[in-house]
């Protein structure tokens, strides 16, 4: 883990690029509104930060996949002056990045912006308690994905997280929600952190954290419940290599210091 430590706004920018934007895929897979917005379109969005990170989002077959190597074909290229410039856009401010079309299709730009708005609606609902179970499950699914993809960014680029991960035992952690098809995993081998959604396919977990339901997971991910008491009350179950889950949770819990959802 030799990546450079980053400033607060650079870390936030990386969280937006590598944790929040990938949540568009979950949004497309799990909400009819998002599916309807995208329809059958195929295009790419490339986002570059001046002297910094770059991602390419490929919208195809109803999915949104992150690809950093694929050349941009039928797409739109956004240029941002600085990490802050992108952060302001992602936080909902009216921001004008540089835009370049490989083929002039402004409809794709509108689709992308509508999907971003929908993502914000799911991530920051006005009152989650009045929403139906499906909405709440999607909200938690998106948060879980952001937490696990954000984990890597913090572990690599934030000092306290990097220090903590070095003290964390190696292994594979699975966080899941009882009776729901909601899970995310992260593995740490002393050099790299990998994360993914769903159950890990390649290896059995070394620690399993199970939330009793989506509401408990939501509260836990948003630091709105007492995690130690919740374990004692069996609202959260933990088994296995607990220091691994502790180390990863420490980092996940730092994400809200950067990212206000």
């Amino acid at each position: 883990m030799s990546a450079q430590l980053k400033s607060h706004s650079e870390i936030l920018c990386r969280l937006h690029l590598y944790a929040v934007l990938p949540a568009l895929d979950d949004l497309l897979k799990n909400t009819t509104e998002a599916k309807k917005i995208l329809g059958g379109r195929t295009f790419s969005i490339s986002i570059s930060i001046h002297n910094g990170a770059k991602v390419i989002l490929s919208f195809k077959d109803g999915r949104c996949l992150i690809d950093e190597t694929r050349p941009l074909d039928d797409g739109i290229h956004f240029f941002f002056r600085s990490p802050d410039h992108l952060n302001r856009l992602m936080q909902g401010s009216l921001v004008l990045p540089g835009v370049e079309f490989t083929t002039f299709r402004p409809g794709n730009l509108i689709v992308f912006l509508r999907l971003l708005n929908l993502l914000r609606k799911y991530l920051r609902p006005r009152d989650l308690t009045t929403r139906d179970a499906q909405f709440r499950a999607n909200h938690v699914r998106l948060l879980l994905g952001i937490a696990f993809f954000g984990l890597r960014q913090l572990a690599e680029h934030e000092e306290a997280s990097r220090r903590r991960i070095q003290e964390t035992p190696h292994g594979l952690a699975l966080f899941s929600i009882e009776n729901e098809n909601l899970a995310a995993w992260a593995s740490w081998d002393g050099v790299n952190i990998l994360a993914g959604k769903g159950e890990p396919e390649h290896k059995s977990p070394d620690v399993i954290v199970t939330f009793k339901d989506a509401a408990i997971a939501y509260q836990a991910l948003n630091e709105k419940l007492d995690p130690m008491a919740s374990i004692g009350l069996h609202l959260i179950q933990t088994r296995g290599l607990l220091p691994l889950a502790d180390g990863l949770s420490f980092i996940i819990e730092r994400i809200p210091r950067f990212l206000t959802l």
């Binding site: 995690p227 130690m228 008491a229 374990i231 004692g232 009350l233």
Partner: peptide, 14 residues
């Protein structure tokens, strides 16, 4: 935490 520190249920087998 309900019970904190080393005696916390979370540190043992809840």
């Amino acid at each position: 935490g309900g019970i904190y520190g080393h005696a916390s249920p979370a540190a043992g087998l809840p």
